[in-house]
Amino acid sequence: AEIMKKTDFDKVASEYTKIGTISTTGEMSPLDAREDLIKKADEKGADVVVLTSGQTENKIHGTADIYKKK
């Protein structure tokens, strides 16, 4: 799966169907969080990951919607 910015995804959204939401939390780098989200998306058969939230304090927390091409 590839990560797309919401603004970029909005241009092609009609080509995809939302298949779920994924999240990651833990003591990790932003890059590790990104890789974890991609891994989870791949496991669910998603083609595209669109980040919906991200937070960093002591731990990273990120959520994303996942989509499959129609």
Rank of each mutant, 00 (worst) to 15 (best):
G45D: 05
H61D: 08
H61R: 11
G20M: 03
Y16N: 01
G62I: 15
D47A: 05
S53G: 11
M4G: 01
G26P: 09
N58L: 12
D36P: 02
L51A: 04
D42F: 11
T63Q: 11
D32F: 08
D32Q: 14
N58R: 04
D8K: 04
K40D: 03
K59E: 14
D8I: 04
V12M: 06
I66K: 01
D8N: 06
A64T: 02
V12S: 02
D8S: 04
K11C: 08
E2S: 13
Q55D: 14
Y16C: 01
K5C: 15
M4W: 13
A13N: 03
F9W: 03
T63P: 07
K70C: 09
M28V: 06
L51V: 08
G45C: 10
G20I: 00
Y16R: 00
I38N: 02
N58D: 14
M28D: 06
I38W: 04
K5Y: 14
S23Y: 13
T25C: 15
A1L: 07
A13G: 04
M4E: 02
L31R: 12
L31A: 15
S23F: 13
K70D: 04
M28G: 06
I66R: 00
A33M: 12
A33G: 05
E2C: 15
V48T: 02
G20C: 07
Q55I: 13
S53C: 14
S29E: 10
K6E: 09
A46P: 00
D47E: 06
V50R: 00
D8C: 08
G26R: 12
K11R: 09
K11F: 06
K59L: 11
T21D: 04
T7S: 12
K69H: 08
A13K: 12
D32P: 04
V49L: 14
T17P: 00
V48N: 02
D36T: 07
N58W: 11
A41K: 00
D36L: 12
D10A: 08
A41W: 01
I19P: 02
K6R: 11
A13H: 07
A41V: 00
L31M: 11
D36V: 09
A41S: 00
K18T: 04
S14E: 10
I66H: 00
I3R: 00
R34E: 09
K40E: 04
V12H: 05
G54K: 10
N58S: 11
I38G: 02
K69I: 05
E27M: 15
G20E: 03
E27L: 13
D36E: 14
F9M: 04
G54H: 13
S29H: 08
V12F: 05
E57Y: 08
E27W: 14
I38R: 08
E15Y: 14
I19G: 01
D47M: 04
K5R: 08
K18M: 09
G20P: 01
S29G: 08
K6D: 09
H61I: 15
L51H: 03
T56E: 11
L51G: 02
D8P: 01
E15T: 07
E43W: 05
K44Y: 10
A46M: 01
R34F: 14
A13D: 03
S53T: 13
A41Q: 01
K69R: 09
A1E: 00
G26A: 10
T7C: 12
M28K: 08
E57G: 14
I60F: 12
K59A: 14
A1D: 02
D10Q: 08
T24F: 11
K69G: 04
I38F: 03
V12C: 06
A46V: 02
K69E: 03
N58K: 07
K11W: 05
T24H: 05
D65Y: 07
T25L: 09
T52K: 10
V48C: 05
A33H: 09
T56N: 11
G45I: 02
T52F: 09
A33K: 06
Y67A: 01
I19F: 05
T63M: 10
S53R: 05
D10H: 06
T17A: 07
T24K: 01
G45V: 03
D42W: 12
K59V: 12
K39M: 07
I22Y: 01
E43Q: 09
D47T: 07
T25K: 09
T56S: 12
I3H: 04
D10K: 07
A1R: 01
K18P: 04
D32M: 11
E27N: 13
K11H: 06
D10Y: 06
Y67N: 00
E35N: 13
D32R: 10
V49M: 09
G45Q: 05
G54V: 13
E15Q: 14
S29F: 09
D32Y: 06
T17W: 12
G45S: 05
V48D: 00
T56C: 14
E15K: 11
G45W: 04
D36K: 05
K5H: 13
T24G: 04
V48K: 03
P30T: 11
D65C: 09
G20N: 01
A1H: 02
V50G: 01
V49Q: 00
T21N: 08
A46T: 00
D42G: 13
T52M: 07
